[in-house]
Design a protein around this nucleic acid. Sequence first.
RNA 1: GCCCGAGUGGCGGAAUGGCAGACGCGGAGGACUCAAAAUCCUUUGUACGAGAGUACGUGUGGGUUCGAGUCCCACCUCGGGCACCA
Length: 974
Amino acid sequence: MQPRSYSGCSMAHADPDTPPFRYSAALAQDIEMRWQQYWDANHSFDAPNPAGPLADPVAMIDPATGQSRPKLFVLDMFPYPSGTGLHVGHPLGYIGTDVFSRYKRMAGFNVCYTMGFDAFGLPAEQYAVQTGQHPAITTASNVANMRRQLKRLGLSHDPRRSIDTTDPGYYRWTQWIFLQIFNSWYDADAPAREGIREPGAKGRARPISELIAEFEAGSRPTPDGRAWATLTAGEQRSVVDAHRLAYVSEAPVNWCPGLGTVVANEEVTADGRSDRGNFPVFKRNMRQWMMRITTYADRLIDDLDLLDWTDAIKTMQRNWIGRSDGARVRFASAAGDIEVFTNRPDTLFGATFMVLAPEHPLVDSLTTPEHAEAVAAYRAAAAAKKDIDRQDATRTKTGVYTGATATNPVNGAQVPVWIADYVLMGYGTGAIMAVPCGDARDFEFARQFGLPIPAIQQPPQPWFDAHGIEATLDTGTWPEPFVGDAPYVQSSNSSGLTLDGLSSVAEGKRLTNAWLEAHDAGHGNTNFKLRDWLFSRQRYWGEPFPIVYDEHGPIAIPDADLPVLLPETDSFSPRTFDPDDEFSNPESPLDRLDWWTEVELDLGNGAHAYRRDTNVMPQWAGSCWYELRYLDPTNEKAFVDPAVEEYWMGPQDVGVDGRPHPGGVDLYVGGVEHAVLHLLYSRFWHKVLYDLGHVSSLEPYYRLYNQGMILAAAFKDEREIYVEATEVEEHEGAFSFHGEPVTREWGKMGKSLKNAVSPDEMYDAYGADTLRLYEMSTGPMDASRPWETRDVVGMYRFLQRLWRNIVDEQTGELALGAPADEATVRLLHRTIDGVRADLDGLRINTAISKLIELNNHITKGGRCPSDLAEPITLMIAPLCPHLAEELWAKLGHADTLIREPFPVADPQLLIEDTIELPVQVNGKFRSKIAVASDADDATVEAVALADAKVIAALAGAVPKKVIVVPGRTVNIVA
RNA sequence: GCCCGAGUGGCGGAAUGGCAGACGCGGAGGACUCAAAAUCCUUUGUACGAGAGUACGUGUGGGUUCGAGUCCCACCUCGGGCACCA
C-alpha cells in the first residue's frame, strides 16, 4: 500500500463558509504532521538507560525534584508486519499503552515504551510466496508501511529501541540464547538462586559444562554405571546430549503436509488441524529439535501466583500444563509389571480391571492366543483412526479383552486386562487401572462390557436424593459413578492399609501412597499434560539453528561466529504436499542449498567438514525474549546489559498479595489469543535465563492486561459469501448490498470478512487525535466492542468544541475568557482528581467522559476561562497529544508538554460547602435536601423530616427509624 | 460435560451496597442556509397523564439488607477456553 497524500482530501476545505481555523480534519492533519516531526527531531520520547550505549544519567533525574525518576516499562505485544497493513482494530491496545505512557511521563516517570516487529514466520513467508518476492523484501516494505501507520497515530515510542526479529543484529542473540539453552541441563536437586524463589527451593538450569565436570570427576554416575573415561567419545556425547534443555530426538510429532513442516502441540487446534492454514495434522515419529519445557512445568504453574494477570489467563496456562497429583502403581502380570498413573490412588480397592492403550508395548506379550485375532483387529482399527476421532468423548466406548489378568497390589485380586482406544498412549503410562464406581469413563466401559462395579465409598444421602434412588451400595441402581469425599468401604487389606472409616480423599491418597512405597508397588507421582516443545520447522523464513553436525550429533557454533546468517536464495518456497498426504516427508528449503549446508570449520580441534542444521526456529523464538532487547537494543557485547535489565525489569519491593515480586515488565498489553503459546514459551526462556544468571527477574511480564477486540459488522449474501461491508446499505433495520438483501453478523475485523476499516480513512476524515479518542471512549480497554464509523463524529465534535473554547476560529489566535468562577474551579479540580484516578486504573473511557463534562460546562459559558486552559490542555495531552501540543504552544510555551507535570487536584477544592442529599422513604426516593457537608446526622435527619415532599410521602406515618449515610443518603423507615 | 467471563435504553456504554442510564451515537424539534451538508441549541428509558406527577424498569426466580444493577442461591442465554488427560 502506498502512503496516501494528506493534502486536498479534507471535507472542510470544500466549503468556503467554514471558519478558516475550525478544528477540521485538514487542520488536525496539519497539526499532527507538524508535531510528529517535532517529536522526531527533538528525540522527545528517548528514555535514558542507567548504563550501556543508551546511558544518560542526567536525563534520569527529574529536575522538579532533583531525584531519580521512577521507572516504568510499558510493553505491547508486537505485531506481525502483514502485507495488508493495519486496520483500526489493531491499535486499540497501542493507543491505550500510549495514553498510559504519556500520562505516566507527565507524572514524573522514566517510561520505556517502544515497538518492534515479529517478522519471521509463516505469515510473512506465505505473503512472500504469494507475491513471488523474497520475504526479506516484502517484510521490509510491510514493516515500513506499518511504521508509517503507527507513527501517524502519534504513538510515543522511543524510536532508537525499535527492533525487528529478522535483523541479524537481533537474531544473533536469539541464536545465542538458543545456545545457552542447548548448553544447559536441568538439575532438579540444585538449590535455587537466592532471592525471589522461596528459601530452600530446588531445581535450576545449570551450564552443561558443570555436568560434564561432574561426570569426569566421578561425582555423578553415568546412566549405565560405567566409568566416564571408559566411554567412547560418541557415548559421552550421547549421555551429555540426553541432558540438554534443547535436544534432538526421534519422537511422535505433529506433521502438517499442507504447511510442509512440523508444528508444536500448541499450534494444533482441538480438531486436529493447524491453527495456521487449518490443514490436517498427523502424528508421526520424526527426528526433531525439542525444548525440555516440561522440566519447568511445576515452576511455570507455581509462579503464576506471583503475577498480576487475570485469573482467566492463569487458568488457561494451568489447564494447558495440566498438573495432576497422584501415584504410579505397578500391577504384576505374566508379561511383567504394568505401570499405571492414577490421580486417585485411594480408589485402588475399586480397581476391577485394567485398560491399556492399543499401542501399549505390553499388549503383544499379554494377549492370549484365543484373543489374538480380536486384539489385532482392534489395534488395526485404532491405528487407522485419526487422533481427533479417537478423542471424541461422546462416542460409545469400545475395547477388547486380551485374555490376560494382572494383580491388584492392594488386595491381590486378579483383574482382567483390556485394551481400548479411550486410553491414550501419550499421557501417563498409556495404561490405566479402571475404577468404575468412581470414574465416568470406567463406569461407562464397565456397563458396556458387563464388568463388575463394586462400591468403595458410601455416597452421602443428598447424592442419592438428587438421583431419586434409595441409598445403597448396589451400584446397579446408580445412574453415574460417585466422585468426591465420602467414607470408604471395602477399602482395607491385611497388610496395613486401612481406609475404611476415613472420608477424606486427600488423606486416603496420602495413606495409599505411603503404603505403595513401603510395599514397593508404586509411589506418589505428579503427571503433566504439557509435552516438550517441538522447536524446529522445515521452512525458510526463520532463524537458522547455530548448529552443525559431526558423526556423533549436534555441535554448537561458537558464540564468536554468531549470527549464523539465513542464506540468500531465490528458492525460499517450502515444499508443501497434498494436505492429506500423511506419509509425505518434510523437506527444508535450506536442505537444498549444498553450498551452505556443507561447511568446513575449526571448532578447536582443527578444520573439519560439518553439515549445518537445515531447520529454522519456530515463529515464537523471536518473541520469547524481545522485551529484553528493547532495553538495550544496540548492545553488541550482550543481549542486554545486566544493569539495564535490573533497572527496568528487576524485582520491586512487594508483589501480588504481599508475595515476593518476581520482576518483569510493569504493564504488558495484548490479546488473549497468546494466553498459552507466546506467554508460556517466553516465561520458559526467561526462567532459563534467570537460572543461568543472565537476568535478575524471575518472570518476563509482571502485569498482563488483555485488551478486547474490535469487532465489525460483516455481511453475507444469500450464497453465504461475504460482501464488501462499506457498500452495504441499511434501511429500516434491513441490510442490502447493491439491492440484494444481506444478513449481518459481528466478527473480527479483517480481510476475510471484508469489513476492515483502515486507520488512513480515519486520518483523512477526522485526524489521528479523534481516532485515538474514539477508540478509547467506546468502552473499557479489556472489553471487545463493535466498530461504528458513524459514532466517530462524537469525539470529533468534542475536540472541535474544546478547540473553539480556546482558539478563535476566524483568526486562529488564542481567545480565552475571564478567570473561572468558584463552581467551575471546583469542577476542574474534581475532574483532575477523577481523570488521574481513571488513567491510573486504565479506565480511559471514563476519563474521557469526565473531560467532556468539564468541556461541556465551559461551553455553556462561551470561552474557556483563562485559568482553565492550561490544566485542560495538560489533561487532554495523553489522549490527544497533537492537539494538546498545539494548544500548549498557543498558550505561550516554547517547549513540549511531554514532561510537563500532570495537574494535581487541590484537596480543599474537592470538599463542597453544601451538598445535596437524596432522601428515601421506605427505600423509595422521594426528595432532595441541601445540607452543610459537615452537618451531623441529627441535623441531616431534622432537615429531611422537615422536607415537604417527605412529609407528604409519610402521609402522617411516624418514622420508626431514620438511617443517615453521611454524604450519601437518608432513608426514613416508617 | 468441565472451567472462566458477561447479560443495563434503539446502539456503544456509566454507576466505592445509596438519585439507574454519566459520556457518546442515533431519534425528535429548532437556529444558521435559497437549499443541503457541516456546526450550534433544546429534547430523548417505558407506560399513563394536558401538567405537576404517578407507576414500572438493569436476563429469570428466590434470598440477605433500612436500601441491590452491585452481595448470596438456583436457573436461562450469549461469548471464550479445555475436553475420553486416568
